[in-house]
Design a protein around this nucleic acid. Structure first.
Lengths: 340, 340
DNA sequence: CAATTTCGGGAATGCGCTTTCCACGATAGT
DNA sequence: ACTATCGTGGAAAGCGCATTCCCGAAATTG
């Protein structure tokens, strides 16, 4: 069907080997006159190397896999963009899989990538506390076969990657909020079985504790906008009795959750931050268009993706790096006037 | 390195052919006893079929390519999610490419996908008016080799896909705005060389004209948040002289642009919608968290992606479908009280 | 019960390409 | 001048798998 290298070789009147040598970066460079002829033939015929055949012969696909929980979530799409940028024009292709937060699908994705013999797999998306044993074994066997695993977020077994220090970041964020004058905190802690949300909530509370404070409430739920919306709604309903209310600061373990929480707060007729201050985590790009501007802990998401991409390219040294976020206080956590 | 089918066959004490037949959906089903033995061996050894080898032998990769301009843009990431969902658990893998709006990179992406022998390529991201001849030829030769092209947005040559009727949608949107009482319009028309932005601007203005109105200003610029921000800033600067001002309605040819415009408006100390009403296009998910809520023309982005994915699966009937958006008026286009 | 068909497993071929390994003519070394 | 070396292109052997053919044995039929 498609033009094969053989066709090009025939057209140019050279052998298959020679054609291969001139068209694909081989160590041996055929004579200029011959090279030109081959290139001309390839051009004329519209030749495209069959990547599958090349992969088979070379034992290296130039493929990497990226697994995210939801590509439409700004957190992941920003990372994905970073990965693309990190890959640059290396010729490496990106295979994408969305898991919809389903561990089963995550395993399926890794299996599929293993079948594709991707040179590396980037695992973003928070992993569960009780690590799925199947995933672990898969990853191990992948590495044994020379595959590279880069984990974004929490370190996993013997894999390299980019470790986000959620605990420290949360502690610093809590510190800033306390310094700003906040004393009464509620934590929307997300899913307690996910390493990421857990670490963020714990870091935050650890700092409170060390300062002699304690969260007035810690609410678990889904690590998503909806989860936060529901958790916040419930909380507000439970509060209606205890009026009048003093300003409380709600720490959400992700920006996306903060958005859901704000939605719930608004629907109940309260204002942010006058009635309830809200703080997020991540600093997703979406925030620039939200009013009031949302306080958060800034993570260089795109950079993180880029680093992951670059890590993949520099195959071999499966380095690890640690990223700590920076607290950024904006309008959504401004202290109510009377409390100043 | 990795376990091969041969290894499994040996382990199970059967031939390569038999192992292949039991592990991959072949027409011939070996005896139950043998099948079990083979499956057990595969399981024990941790066998993963080599997708490249399979592709080579079968002459069909189960790969499709998706090219977008920027995966971090909610418009594209929502479509991408839809595509993923549309692919479902068909076992088809998704190859992603971001072009950063660079036609050159778009061509590179298509070439790469052709090399990967993807079964189909989904082209989202608006194409230029003066269609790049190189791209056209590439696509043609891809189709000649049995590749399927699905274009999202504007139809391209003889390809199937999902055609968004920007003109009609814009006309309807303009109609709604006029019905709501708006009379003075400014159009942030984006890039006049992109089919999408051009169609949206033209549809809008056509409707104005037919109603006996005319846009007080039509400003071109980049089809992006930044482009709109700059265009709006410039416009506002030019207006400062002509106070006092009556309420004007700014139509931006995309939601992302509307966000940029709103930013510019706010920075100049004006309010949306009291001083300037703003209207977007697309209804990206991001909008739910923006205040004031933004009027727009709703496009079922995720569905569009899903349809594209399903189209790819039902290989063969390269159907076309047309989607028209629905005007949704929200707070950002509310008429100033005195004008009611 | 012999003749014929069906069935199921194995050997071998080919998918398109890379990469040794070879053969051969040109160049250099003594 | 004759051999040792190098540089170049071609032939051929895989890479891992699907699949066509083939062949022996079991099942069917009259």
């Amino acid at each position: 069907m498609a033009i094969r290298l053989t066709d090009v070789a025939n057209e140019a009147g050279v052998s298959l080997a020679t054609a291969s040598r001139v068209l694909n970066g081989s160590a041996r460079k055929p004579a200029a006159e011959i090279s030109d002829r081959v290139r001309a033939a390839a051009e004329k015929l519209g030749y495209f190397p069959n990547a599958q055949a090349q992969a088979l012969a070379r034992a290296s696909t130039k493929l990497i896999g990226l697994v995210v929980r939801d590509i439409a979530d700004p957190y992941f799409s920003t990372i994905a963009r970073g990965v693309q940028r990190g890959l640059g024009d290396s010729g490496t292709q990106l295979l994408l899989a969305s898991t919809d937060s389903d561990p089963e699908r995550e395993i399926e994705a890794v299996k599929a990538f293993m079948s594709q013999r991707t040179d590396a797999i980037i695992l973003s998306g928070s992993r569960a506390l009780s690590e799925d044993d199947g995933l672990l074994r898969l990853i191990e066997s992948y590495q044994d076969n020379g595959g590279q695993i880069v984990v974004i977020g929490q370190p996993l077994a013997s894999t390299g990657g980019i470790h986000v220090d959620n605990e420290t970041t949360s502690e610093n964020l809590a510190g800033e909020l306390i310094r700003a004058g906040h004393r009464k905190f509620v934590v929307l802690a997300g899913d307690e079985n996910l390493l990421t949300s857990r670490g963020r909530a714990q870091g935050f509370m650890a700092k409170l504790k060390r300062t002699g404070l304690v969260a007035v409430d810690v609410i678990h739920g889904a690590f998503s906008r909806e989860g936060a919306y529901m958790a916040m709604s419930d909380y507000l309903k439970g509060c209606e009795a205890t009026e009048p209310r003093e300003q409380v600061c709600v720490f959400c373990v992700s920006d996306v959750m903060a958005l859901g929480a704000i939605r719930a707060i608004r629907e109940s007729g309260l204002r942010v931050p006058q009635d309830i201050a809200v703080v997020g985590f991540d600093d997703i790009p979406t925030l620039v268009d939200v009013t009031p501007s949302i306080s958060t802990a800034r993570l260089p998401l795109e950079e993180i993706g880029r680093w992951a991409g670059e890590m993949v390219l520099s195959h071999g040294d499966a380095r690890k790096m640690v990223v700590t976020g920076t607290p950024v206080l904006r309008e959504s956590s401004e202290l109510r006037a009377e409390n100043r």
